[in-house]
Amino acid sequence: MPQISQLMEVYLGQFFWLLIVIGIIYFGIARNMVPKISKTVDDRQKRITDDLAAAQAGQDKAEQIEADYRTSINEARAAAIEFVNEAKAKAASKNEAAIKRAETAIGKKADEADAELKAAQSSAMKEIEAVAAEAAQAIVKTVSGAKVTATEAKKAVKAAF
């Protein structure tokens, strides 16, 4: 086995070159390049975590804005409904008042017209009675020749009506 038979002649050389190579790997690669690679990985991990956190924050903000928008729109809608109801009530009461006023005015006018009509009717009746009495007086005079006083004729006409 050459590893044993050669041992005494080569071991110093083997140690010498191995120490040089191992030293270069240790100081040149393991202590110099590896931390940079680890840092790249860590940086990427951090970047991913940060980005995820930022995205989460953005989403939260968007949700908050949506919720705010919803409450404000609900408030506005409620206010609008209240305003409309108020306006409706106001308009209704105004209308009612106007109608009442109009009704009273119409009623008054109708009463006046009624009264006038009644007055006209009664005056017309009186005139008719007077004319009828005169006519009755004249008819009696020409038919029977009897004289009928105006008061008698009037009484008779009234009784006939």
């Binding site: 002649e9 080569v10 110093l12 050389g13 083997q14 010498f16 070159w17 191995l18 190579v21």
Partner: peptide, 14 residues
Amino acid sequence: GQQISFTNSALWMF
């Protein structure tokens, strides 16, 4: 007192 020569072993280490 020992010869340190560049051997095939050293070559493959490099």
